[in-house]
């Protein structure tokens, strides 16, 4: 089963949504790029397991 077919089946099973058009299929197939992007940054960050708050970071780094 291709990545796209697996993705379509998963979305149908979990959300009850079918691909609405060809553009949806093109962009769903491009999730491979998202996976590659996550793989590329995996393990590169020292804060891998630390708790974090974005709002606190905004305040900590503010002007």
């Amino acid at each position: 089963m291709s990545f796209l077919a697996e993705t379509e089946a998963m979305i149908a099973a979990w959300h009850g949504i079918a691909p609405p058009n060809a553009a949806a299929r093109v962009m769903a197939a491009d999730l491979v790029a998202t996976i590659r992007a996550f793989e590329a940054v995996r393990g590169q960050m020292r804060f891998e397991d630390e708790p974090a708050s974005f709002e606190a970071a905004l305040q900590e780094t503010k002007e």
């Binding site: 959300h15 949504i17 609405p20 553009a23 949806a24 769903a28 999730l31």
Partner: peptide, 14 residues
């Protein structure tokens, strides 16, 4: 629109 539903659709698979 096609461009909108097409763009949102992959979000259900992340």
């Amino acid at each position: 629109a096609v461009h909108l539903s097409g763009r949102m659709y992959p979000g259900f698979a992340v």
